[in-house]
């Protein structure tokens, strides 16, 4: 039963890869990769159960956090074309949206 769930998740991941390849806009691809990461976390946990080693859950926890950070990093890079810009809200209102390019 667990194995069947694992296979189903892998099928879903293959379909997401197709969306990441054909996705018309860049954001579709990022969405697919983000969702792929969530499924990877679940697959890691289930794999630990199938192989009888629940230690895999540690890796899954770590991957949850890395997945989030990588999504934010990719989006930040695509917005600013650089990792050096601090991600804080500007305090003065008129500067908002002036220096952003997609």
């Amino acid at each position: 039963m667990t194995f069947a769930a694992l296979i189903a998740l892998l099928v879903g991941m293959c379909m997401l890869l197709i969306r990441a390849l054909i996705g018309p806009t860049m954001y579709d691809r990022v969405l697919a990769v983000n969702s792929f990461g969530t499924k990877t976390v679940l697959v890691l946990g289930l794999l630990g159960y199938v192989m009888g080693r629940p230690d895999f859950l540690d890796i899954a926890i770590l991957y949850t956090l890395i997945n989030f950070v990588s999504t934010i990093a990719i989006l930040k890079f695509f917005r600013y074309r650089s990792f050096q810009v601090p991600l804080v809200r500007k305090t003065d209102a008129p500067a908002r949206g002036g220096d952003r390019n997609g």
Binding site: T2, A4, A5, V11, M15, L16, L31, S35, L42, L46
Partner: peptide, 29 residues
């Protein structure tokens, strides 16, 4: 537990089907 896992995995696949079918980025979200 196995049955609940399988049901959740099927829901994941349904969500992926939605990602494949929906017409634009926001609906895919």
């Amino acid at each position: 537990g196995g049955a609940v896992c399988l049901f959740g995995a099927i829901l994941c696949v349904i969500g992926t089907i939605g990602v494949m079918r929906f017409p634009d980025f926001y609906t895919r979200l």
